[in-house]
C-alpha cells in the first residue's frame, strides 16, 4: 500500500499532488457524465474538458513521482493511493448533481485555475512553468465555456436562474480552500515556485464577481462557513466512491501492461 503521508514528503511534492489530484478528480467527475450529459454537444465538451484535465494531471503527477524517487509513475500515483493520500481541493470531488451544479463547480474552479496557472507559468521551477504555460491555454478556454454557461443559466429563465443560484449556494461552502493558504503555499511562494496566494485570491474574487453580476446571481458571502481539509488529505465521503470506481480496474489487474 502506497502511503505518501507516512513518507517524507517535501513541500514541492505535496504542492504537485495538490495540482495533479485536483485536475485528476475533476477530470474524473467530468468523465462520469459520459453518456449522461443533457445534450450531445455538451457531452463532447465535458469529455474534452476532462481529457485536458487528465493530461494536466499526468504532467503534474509524473513530476511528483520523479521527485519522490520511489520508482513510481503518474499512473501509480493516480491509481494506487487511497483517499487520505489525495491532496485535491474538496470542491472538485463534489458530486455532479444537475447541469447547474456541474457548471457552477467548473466555473468556480476554472476562475481559480486560470489565475493560478498564470502565476505558475512564471515559476522559478522550469518544469512547472512549462506545464503551466501549456495548461493555461486549455484552462482559459474552459473558463470561457463555464462562464458562458453560468451567465446563460443565471440570466436565463426563472427555472434556470433558480437552479443556478441554488447550485452556487450549495457549492460555495467548498470555495474556502481556493483562497486560503497554508505553510505549503507559503513555502512555494517564498521559493518563487508559486504565485502569491493573496494575489491569487484577489484575482479569483474579481473574476467570480464579474461573471456572477452578469449572470444576475447573488454571490454568497466570502465569510460564510467553509469546509476545508482536502489539501491535507481530509476529504468528504464522495472522494472514496469516486476513487473506487476510477481505480477498480488497475487495482484488479495491477500488473497488466496492455489494456
Amino acid at each position: 500500500m502506497h502511503n505518501v503521508a507516512q513518507k517524507t514528503q517535501t513541500p514541492l511534492i505535496t504542492y504537485l499532488l495538490r495540482l495533479g489530484d485536483s485536475a485528476l478528480v475533476l477530470g474524473q467527475r467530468s468523465a462520469q457524465l459520459c453518456g449522461k450529459a443533457p445534450a450531445l454537444e455538451e457531452e463532447m465538451a465535458l469529455m474534452n474538458v476532462g481529457l485536458d484535465l487528465f493530461g494536466q494531471a499526468r504532467n503534474w503527477l509524473a513530476y511528483a513521482a520523479e521527485l519522490e524517487g520511489e520508482g513510481h509513475d503518474a499512473d501509480y500515483l493516480a491509481f494506487r493511493r487511497d483517499a487520505q493520500d489525495f491532496r485535491n481541493l474538496l470542491i472538485v470531488e463534489q458530486p455532479n448533481g444537475d447541469f447547474a451544479d456541474i457548471m457552477g463547480r467548473q466555473f468556480l474552479f476554472d476562475a481559480w485555475h486560470v489565475h493560478l496557472l498564470e502565476g505558475l507559468a512564471d515559476s522559478s521551477d522550469p518544469r512547472i512553468a512549462e506545464v503551466a504555460a501549456k495548461s493555461l491555454k486549455e484552462a482559459t478556454y474552459h473558463l470561457r465555456r463555464s462562464s458562458e454557461w453560468v451567465i446563460r443559466l443565471g440570466d436565463g429563465t426563472e427555472e434556470s436562474h433558480t437552479r443556478m443560484q441554488r447550485a452556487l449556494d450549495n457549492i460555495w461552502q467548498f470555495t474556502g480552500e481556493l483562497v486560503q493558504f497554508d505553510e505549503i503555499d507559503q513555502a512555494m511562494q517564498e521559493a518563487g515556485i508559486a504565485p502569491d496566494p493573496e494575489t491569487l485570491a484577489t484575482r479569483w474574487k474579481a473574476t467570480v464577481e464579474e461573471v456572477l453580476e452578469e449572470a444576475t446571481l447573488e454571490r454568497p458571502s466570502y465569510d460564510a462557513w467553509m469546509y476545508t481539509g482536502g489539501k491535507v488529505g481530509h476529504h468528504t465521503e464522495h472522494l472514496g466512491f469516486l476513487l473506487a470506481e476510477m481505480q477498480y480496474l488497475p487495482r484488479t489487474y495491477p500488473d497488466a501492461t496492455v489494456w
Partner: peptide
C-alpha cells in the same frame, strides 16, 4: 458556433 468543443479537444462545433 454550436459548442465550444467538437469531436476532439482541438475543434469547436
Amino acid at each position: 458556433r454550436v459548442s465550444e468543443f467538437g469531436s476532439t479537444a482541438c475543434k469547436a462545433l
